[in-house]
Design a protein around this nucleic acid. Structure first.
Lengths: 251, 251
DNA sequence: CGAGCATTTGAAAGCTGTCAATTCCGGTGG
DNA sequence: CCACCGGAATTGACAGCTTTCAAATGCTCG
């Protein structure tokens, strides 16, 4: 397989920032948001490459992302890495079956990131008093599973070009709502090694495949900017379906 | 890639069966279980190879599995198939972000299956009146994600032998609690094609890999019976961690 | 301006897929 | 009880996509 682990780990102190209607709170009426605040313990801004929690460690906070990019990944004993998902603004972070069980994966920021901290202990109380939040969380979690399934199909049943096409479209569609003014070019902080570890390929093969896609005028990726050159052909190549990626639970 | 779709679809009428404390209800005190029953709409027994719901169709029920094997899978436009997960007794079935959106995957029984039907419409009401059920559902869903992540690692970063070893151990550990008397041999209703579509390989390569594992005395698979011959070496080969597979949310 | 990470490329090996054909096995009908 | 049928399991040969190994070039940050 491939890949070595990262080593950075400079944690920054938490900084308060204004309340926002994102993530689990996005569908609540204004009054609810104010009340729900009391369960929170704070918010913080983390620089790029910060380890938020590590696979194997007990971690007792939940987070909602406000801004930034975070990746979830698992490291294998042989040193290789599998990136599981990218967490973007409005997404939920660090859900695990049991608070007492160690995390099964790690989370690290790719860019400067602002997130809202929520102690796991308050969760049951929140569920009791705000069942609509519970429903919201359930739906978000269900959507995460849907995305995870898409990834399984992507890695399990597609070739290199199709896998990259899918990844680009997926991220493109999730970033767009955050920056409606961007056209076909978005910020794309992943390295080619990150891409490789996401779609189950090697860095070298990702590089070759990127060249192939570029030469055919499908996408352009350089200096951490991604440009969708031929959206229709990309969708067709990837077997992409927007539904599978949308961040809009409705209930 | 590979594979064609199945065609069977003989639905059987629902049959009432006694209340059981499984799935979402497994942690509730007895009194709660009785009350919670009112939200349910019934239970049914399905023969093997029954399609429970189909990718692309709206489906308005949730289920808890009582007995049997169900597989969740997605079909690609080129005809290939990716199996996402096997649903066993006590597991939850058919969670999707939005009831109005078509299912993104299909579900089919592998064996005769008994499941408890729960109309999606009642969900919000259930959440309101029984927040502990909401918490339970959240935890089950979180566990499903954890398993899904394990599958991603399995397909994305392991070779054929490791993938099979992992799949066998995962299923073995999930089946054991249901049939504590079984020793190292369990019922295993998947065909080699099913295995292939689960771990992202082809039928032919799965067959060769199975032979390799058998010749090395690691596992034996024939006539839909799986025997773990050398558990320690299998665990080591698969990079298997029991935590990732356990069906025991505690809250 | 230098060091270290990230990106590119070439060549060769290897794992996995494809194609085809045969054997095995459970279930059905005579 | 036995022959037959179709799906499942096996196997061989070969092609092809990906990985490995190495090395060169390009960038970015201190």
């Amino acid at each position: 397989m491939n890949t070595r682990a990262k080593k950075t780990n400079h944690q920054t102190p938490c900084t308060l920032c204004p309340v926002r209607q994102l993530g689990i709170f996005q569908r609540l009426p204004e009054a609810e948001v104010i009340k729900v605040q009391q369960y929170r313990s704070g918010q913080c801004v983390l620089p790029a490459k910060t380890l938020i929690y590590r696979q194997g460690e007990v971690h007792n906070h939940l987070y909602t992302m406000f801004t930034g990019w975070v990746m979830l990944y698992k490291t294998l004993s042989n040193g290789s890495r599998q990136i599981l998902r990218y967490v973007l603004a409005g997404d939920f972070l660090s859900f695990q079956p049991d608070a007492r069980v160690p995390m099964t994966h790690s989370a690290q920021t790719l860019t400067e990131t602002t997130l809202c901290v929520f102690p796991r202990q308050n969760l049951m109380q929140l569920f009791n008093e705000h069942p609509e939040v519970a429903a919201q969380i359930t739906l978000i979690t269900a959507r995460d599973i849907t995305l995870s399934y898409e990834y399984l199909v992507n890695i399990g049943r597609k070739n290199a070009r199709e896998r990259l096409a899918f990844l680009f479209l997926e991220i493109y569609h999730r970033v767009l709502p955050q920056f409606p003014e961007t056209g076909t070019t978005i910020m794309f902080p992943l390295t080619q090694e990150d891409i490789a570890d996401t779609v189950g390929l090697t860095l070298v093969h990702v590089n070759r495949t990127l060249r192939s896609l570029r030469e055919e005028g499908l996408v352009q990726l350089s200096h951490h900017k991604l440009t969708i050159l031929d959206y229709p052909r990309l969708v067709s190549l990837a077997g992409f379906n927007v539904q599978s990626v949308l961040n809009q639970p409705l209930l």
